[in-house]
Amino acid sequence: MMRKPLLWLPMVLGLGLFVLFYLGLENPGQRIINSNVIGRELPEFSTQVAVEGVEPVSSENLRDGNPRLVNVFASWCAPCIQEIPVLLRLRAQGIEIDGIAVHDRPADISRFLAENGNPYRRIGLDNEGRSQLEIGSSGVPETFVIDREGRIVYQHIGIVTEQDIPEILARLGGTG
C-alpha cells in the first residue's frame, strides 16, 4: 500500500473535491456583487436634474466635505418604497442623504416623493445608468456611505431596515 502512493492520489483528489462541494453547500455564495470602488477615489460623474429646483448629484458635490449617504433608487422599484421611512428617520437625525434615480422620469419621481416622502437633499436623474456604473452599483435600492473626501466607505445592497441603522451610523461616524 505504501509502496504505491500514487494509486491513492485519485481518492485524495476525490475527497478534496467533495470537501469543496460540502463547503460550497454550507456557505452559499453571495448572489450580490459588491462595488469595487469602495475605499477608492470616486470616479467623475454627474446626473441630470430630476426635480425642478433641486440640485442634482455629482462626484464633485459629493466631495464638499460632508459625510453622507447616497441612495440609488427608482420610482418603479417597489422595495425602494419600503425603505423610505427608514431613510426619513435617518434624515431626521441630521444625516444628509442624496438620491440617484435610475431609468426614471421626472414626473414619476415627483409623484414617488409626494406619495412616500422625500428624504433627499439632492436628487439626480440617471437615465443611462452612468453614475450607477461609475460607483459600481448593480441594482436598486442600494445605499452608499460617503466620507469627507468623497470616498465610498461602505455599500449596503438592498432595502435599508431598522437593523441596518447602527452599521450605517457606525460607518458614517468612522469617517471622522
Binding site: 448572489r31 431609468h103 443611462e128 445608468g129 452612468r130 456604473l133 441594482g139
Partner: peptide, 23 residues
C-alpha cells in the same frame, strides 16, 4: 451582466446590461 449574473451583457434584457453595452 451584474443583475442577471448567469448571462453575458450581450444577451441580457436587463436595463443595466444595456447601460454596460452603451459604455
Amino acid at each position: 451582466c451584474v443583475v442577471c449574473q448567469g448571462q453575458p451583457i450581450s444577451g441580457s434584457n436587463a436595463d443595466i446590461a444595456g447601460d454596460m453595452r452603451r459604455i
